[in-house]
Each structure stands twice: as C-alpha cells, then as structure tokens.
C-alpha cells in the first residue's frame, strides 16, 4: 500500500455533548471566540418522543474530507486541493473569497476566516502530521468518540473499527464519498 488515506470513524453514541472537541479545535487552529466561527461542531439532534418516553442523540461533525470534492470542483483558483493522504486543504494565498466552495459544500463546513482573508475549515489538524499527532478533537475527547487513522492500513484502529461495525456516512445521496464514517 503506497499511500495513506486519512479518515475518522465516529461513535456518536458515546458523545456527551461536552464541547471538549470544539474548544480544543479553537485553540489548536486559532479561532477567536465570539466571532461565531468554527471548524467542528456538535449538533443536538431533535429530541424524540414525549415525557417520559424520550431519547436524545448528538452528532459531532466537521469537514467530511470527501473523495468526490464539490468544494474543489467549483474553486476557480484551485485554492482548495487534496494532500497525498486525501486531506482537503486550502491554499490561503490563492483564495479570492468568492465563496463558491461555501455554497457547494453539502455539509456547511466552511467559513470565512477574516484574519487570513480566506475561506477556512477543518484540516484534520494537518499541522500536527509531521509529529504524528492526532487531530486536537480526537486527542482531547473524554469518551473517544472519534478515532483517526489511515484507512488504507488494515491494522489501524480506525480501519478495524470500520471493518467491525456497520457504519453510515452523511448525505450519501450527494455522492461525495466522505472520509467520516459514523458507527450505527
């Protein structure tokens, strides 16, 4: 196997909605509070049922690092590109803030970074890769909702989880082939 293929397998049932991941992301990626900017988020899904028979689930999410990448397809300056491991990245110098990618993204994963004068989003904390460190959201999670790894390596924890569980992807009808896999 020549190349790595990074992805995240999530077990949303473990999510406490504690927000550790979203705060860790903000420090790691210098996102200022109070500006309503974020790279990752936890959605409180609609409460099901009526008292006392109810259930509540949460859905942590972020850029899906799609294999079919609508944001890259629409980018007029090729500012959005993929790393060798399939991580979708942005060349901030090339971005002209046309926001076509924001419209194209089915997951609403992108935002305008006013400090960089560019569109921004989750990069799987690509800056941590040279040191072999996990993304901040993965590392900090109290219950280990996310497992990050090389999906081309059958021995990675992420690959094993993917093999051993039924999983689903978000908005499969958009045929984006996300790299985030949710355990059913």
């Amino acid at each position: 196997m020549a190349t790595k293929k990074f992805g995240i397998v999530l077990d949303a049932k473990k999510c406490l909605n504690c927000k550790a991941c979203t705060v860790a992301c903000k420090f790691e990626n210098t996102i200022h509070p109070g500006e309503d900017d974020y790279r990752i988020w936890v959605t409180e899904l609609e409460l099901k049922g009526t008292y006392p028979n109810i259930s509540q689930e949460y859905q942590p999410s972020q850029c899906q690092h799609c294999e079919n990448t609508p944001c890259a397809s629409v980018c007029p300056t090729k500012a959005t590109y993929k790393s060798p491991e399939g991580v979708v990245l942005i060349d901030y110098d090339k971005c002209i803030l046309c926001k076509a990618c924001m419209t194209a993204c089915p997951y609403d994963a992108r935002y305008e970074n006013v400090h960089l004068h560019a569109i921004d989003k989750c990069t799987f904390c690509y800056q941590r890769q040279p040191e072999g460190r996990e993304p901040a959201c993965v590392e900090t999670c109290p219950t280990r909702v996310r497992v990050f790894g090389d999906l081309n390596d059958p021995e990675s924890e992420a690959s094993k989880l993917l093999a051993r569980n039924h999983t689903y992807q978000l908005k499969p009808e958009r045929n984006t082939r996300p790299r985030l896999h949710y355990i059913k």
Binding site: C18, K19, A20, T22, V23, A24, K26, F27, T140, C141, P142
Partner: peptide, 13 residues
C-alpha cells in the same frame, strides 16, 4: 482522566 481534557480544561488556556 484517561488522558482527556474537557471543554473547560481546554478553555483554561
């Protein structure tokens, strides 16, 4: 703590 840091632990910075 099973090597975690919660929202508050992160926000402590």
């Amino acid at each position: 703590s099973r090597a975690m840091l919660c929202a508050r632990g992160n926000a402590g910075a």
